[in-house]
Nucleic acid binder design. Sequence first.
DNA 1: CTTTGCCTTTGAGCGCACTCCAAGGCGTAC
DNA 2: GTACGCCTTGGAGTGCGCTCAAAGGCAAAG
Lengths: 162, 162
Amino acid sequence: MNTNAVLTTPERRQAFVDRYEVPSLTPLDPELLRLLDLPDDLPEQLSIAEAAEVTGLTAHTLRYYERIGLIRVGRDKAGYRCYDRQALARIVFITRLRLSDMPISTISQYLELVEQGEETAPQRLALMEEHRAMIQRRLRELQAALAVTDYKITTYGGNATP
Amino acid sequence: MNTNAVLTTPERRQAFVDRYEVPSLTPLDPELLRLLDLPDDLPEQLSIAEAAEVTGLTAHTLRYYERIGLIRVGRDKAGYRCYDRQALARIVFITRLRLSDMPISTISQYLELVEQGEETAPQRLALMEEHRAMIQRRLRELQAALAVTDYKITTYGGNATP
DNA sequence: CTTTGCCTTTGAGCGCACTCCAAGGCGTAC
DNA sequence: GTACGCCTTGGAGTGCGCTCAAAGGCAAAG
């Protein structure tokens, strides 16, 4: 492995990222967390269209998530899907993880651990901590990218090269 | 559009993200920026394998970038690609933008503006500023996700629901 | 002169996360 | 009863960003 490699190699990128100071995060207060919760005035059962509207996903995606086993949804007598609060909570949880770029396969894995009961808590915790580390890596990379973009913007007009 | 929608809708996500304070960034100092530059001791001409090693991309990817017109590379008498400093600089630049999730189509667009000469500077600047805003949005989202993950980790064991 | 290894090209394949389609069922509204 | 709209299913298609395969060329080493 070449030690001359540019920031595109893990080592050099790490060197840059390590030196580039990232401010620590302000803690998330509980009042703020409530914004992430489901509203209280939801009906007991929602159709797929309603669930889609509430979660911000499409009906297609909801069906897809069910097909790949991410969620389980009951049917009414007509065979239509009905989403209860628990299903919605799970969907919201999934969406949060997706928003932070967790791959579906990992979410699957996590949810399987949840199904297996309380004794898998340590594994779940480990998984979340790993995810947390991943988010932080990504944050640092993005902040470095932002800094470079800023540099590019402020020094604009200097160079004809990209 | 349902105003009850959870953080998965742009509005609610924005509400959360807006209230969640993101610390401002420390500026990038020039000494640090040098870490992102190409090393000085590069040969004039590199083969594809060497270019791959220097940039951290694979030879496959380098050929792919050329095929889709992102880069232009000369050949030696044997028909082999040779990468000079300028080509490498461009690849590094592309890689930086890719690292911050700029889609290839946008990079293409930017590079076409560069080819068109100095008079496109305003468009290029606008593009970069838009990109900057995108990075910042993503940063905020990720920080919110991190906060939620942290909450999940610190309160672990409380709830059986995911 | 053959082997070895790196290179060329065109074109196809892959993994991910959706996204859409066709054919048909349910149920209320007229 | 038929039109309408929302729902069902299985399966196919899409877009992105690579990634690989097949068939062959060049050139230094033995």
